[in-house]
């Protein structure tokens, strides 16, 4: 087997896979601004469907963004201190706790949602509020925040850094806010992007937990796919992409320089 042939074959396959991933995205984006997708581009471009979607589903957008931010706040408050505690004392116990906290990600959202419904579905106020969905999102995204922060904390010499600060007279709050947090900024940022992205796109749990008054963006998407014409579903998807692609790109940009440094 000669090298150029091998290169070409691999490149070909890679291009094919890339095409498989990107073409439907482009198609759906295009469909969202096409007058009539069945007739094709020749029918002309329009923003009509996008306006329609905003008209019909603006509340789902607002709820999803609000949920994502609330979820971010919760995972920061819960996750960052937890990650610090786990990093500070690597022992069998903390390892076990870490494993435990990750279980909600390993278990399908459907199961978690059913469990939440059975346990808390009886509390009407809670059940019908967006907080019910928030709980699900926090459960599902918290491990990602903890993991991201923990990864950075375990890569720096936390112990010596803190001893250095202590030798200079820094008490725990001083150390935590002045030394530890600034030094795991990259982990917090990566975790935050992940949490927001996952929360905005979460469907498995949310579909079970939502009520007609608490519809999130993906719930609305499923709804539009099932009951609206293709162009509206596409336009809605387009809006979703516009929302989520910058987040995903930021995540890529964030992970790239760090990977290069490691080598």
């Amino acid at each position: 087997m000669n090298r150029p042939f091998l290169f070409a074959a691999q490149l070909g396959l890679t291009l094919l896979v890339a095409a498989f991933l990107v073409i439907p995205v482009l198609m759906s984006m295009l469909a969202g601004v096409t007058v009539n997708f069945f007739q094709g581009i020749s029918s002309g471009l329009t923003l009509r469907w996008v306006w329609r979607v905003l008209d019909l589903y603006a509340d789902t957008l607002a709820l999803s963004l609000g949920l994502a931010l609330a979820c971010l706040a919760c995972t920061l408050v819960l996750g960052v201190p937890a990650a610090y505690a786990l990093a500070k004392r690597p022992s069998r116990l903390t390892r076990l706790i870490e494993e435990m906290l990750v279980v909600p990600v390993a278990v399908p959202g459907l199961a978690t949602a059913l469990a939440l419904l059975i346990a808390y579905g009886g509390f009407r106020e809670f059940r019908t509020s967006a907080a019910f969905i928030l709980v699900g999102h926090v459960l599902f995204t918290l491990p990602f925040m903890i993991r991201a922060v923990l990864a950075v904390l375990s890569s720096i010499d936390l112990k010596t850094l803190e001893e250095g600060a202590r030798s200079l007279g820094a008490s725990f709050p001083h150390r935590f806010f002045g030394v530890i947090l600034p030094n795991c900024r990259s982990g917090i940022l990566a975790g935050s992007l992940m949490v927001v992205t996952l929360s905005i796109g979460e469907f498995n749990l949310t579909w079970m937990l939502h009520t007609p008054l608490t519809k999130t963006l993906p719930v609305g998407l499923a709804d539009s796919y099932a009951s609206m014409r293709l162009e509206i579903g596409s336009a809605y998807t387009l809006i979703f992409f516009i929302l989520i692609l910058p987040l995903l790109m930021a995540m890529q940009a964030l992970s790239r320089p760090r990977r290069r440094k490691e080598t």
């Binding site: 991933l21 979460e202 498995n204 998407l221 796919y225 989520i244 995903l248």
Partner: peptide
């Protein structure tokens, strides 16, 4: 190739 990471299942 890495962008669709965490696209929701519905999409």
């Amino acid at each position: 190739m890495t962008l669709p990471l965490s696209f929701p299942g519905v999409v």
